[in-house]
Amino acid sequence: MLTFLRKRAVGSLISLIGLVVLVFFLSRLTGDPTALFLPVDATVEMREQFRALHGLNDPLLVQFGHYVRDLLHLDFGDSLRKARPAIEVVTEAFAWTLQLALITMSIVTILAIIIGALAAWRGGLFDRVASILSLIGASAPDFWVAIVGIVIFSVSLGWLPTSGTGTVWHWILPVAVLFIRPFGLIVQVVRGAMMTALSSAYVKTARAKGVRARPIIFVHALRNAMLPVITVIGDQAAALLNGAVVIETIFGFPGVGKLMIDSILQRDFNVVMAAIMVTALAIFLMNVLIDIAYALLDPRIRH
């Protein structure tokens, strides 16, 4: 297990380095921050002073060298816009996104597994209704659902706040909208995997042994069916950790996705870089968790 973790860490470090290089140079292509930060009537001297202050006059490679040097000291630089350490800005936003992702994915996982497993076992009308609803869910455009949700529940009915944070009520719409697509997808994967597992030879053996229906579904079949399901859960969770950009923007939710968009538009390079690094790390940890879950579920991977 430890060797495995070490291998994964080394592999991820290499991708992380590639990511730093790519994002650093790509973000410089978006243009000069000076144009955005200083008023239109700023003098040439003022511009020069701003550029010198932030090291923007150095050749790109030198800037990159400085950046990497600071990075090795875990210094992500300061936010140009907010004039405080970029990493602080990012972790604050990331905490919001993490909460949102955790709450959403927990509800999604539990409900999708129960409904998908039952659909596979019972078949008939329940299966058909579950399949159609999950297909609609998996293909629903979330920005549209979000706006319709606001129009109905916030504007017309006035039950829920339109955007922002503060109370429990503020969470309901974003979680509900984010829930729909992963739920639809995962129900379908669970259903498919359970169909395969329930028609497998070992389930036949269990029936020949006289095992009752409930342990056949939830003990014999489900654990085998979880392997492909976990992969999809991991993908979906990773997508949420990346920041649900559209949803966070629509609901004015101060998460990392919204932060990234804002800082790109503002050419706040340090914040962009820090945000990308933090989410990359989070996704790496997520993948390790998925791998550990795999090994726990399937002894063939462990040995």
């Binding site: 030879a201 070992y202 053996t205 654990r223 002894p299 063939r300």
Partner: peptide, 17 residues
């Protein structure tokens, strides 16, 4: 009445001892 099958590998549940 008990039964055994061809291909015991697929007829044993791979994830339980």
């Amino acid at each position: 009445i008990a039964m055994i099958f061809q291909d015991p590998l697929s007829h044993l549940n791979p994830v339980y001892p």
